[in-house]
């Protein structure tokens, strides 16, 4: 892990694609610079010896809370009401192919 690792415009473009966020060419360099600065701060963690330390995913020791698999019927209209684009009782999706 080198200190001078910078974020390139190509990386920003790739990340934006992964995150499905449209960004313009001029935004690419702004993101690269800002993200570089923030990531540099994050690298402060390199100072910490974490050899053999388990990661914390969750602070509460609860596992697999189960319930009976009984469906709860709710009127579909309430949910369909907030769908922005639909046809009859179906959600309209953008073009796939």
């Amino acid at each position: 892990m080198s200190e001078d690792k910078k974020i390139t415009k190509e990386q920003v473009k790739h990340l934006a694609w992964l995150a499905r966020i449209k960004i313009t060419d001029s935004e690419e360099s702004k993101y690269a610079e800002e993200m570089g600065e923030i990531l540099k701060y994050f690298r402060k963690l390199d100072e910490v010896d974490t050899e053999g330390v388990e990661p914390t995913h969750h602070v509460v020791d609860v596992v697999n809370v189960m319930r009976e698999d009984e469906p709860e019927i709710k009127p579909a209209e309430n949910i369909l009401k907030i769908v922005p684009a639909k046809k009859d009782r179906f959600i309209k999706a953008p073009r796939i192919v």
Partner: peptide
């Protein structure tokens, strides 16, 4: 790494 540091803090 952040999650391991989280363990140390806890």
């Amino acid at each position: 790494k952040a999650q391991r540091v989280r363990t140390l803090i806890r």
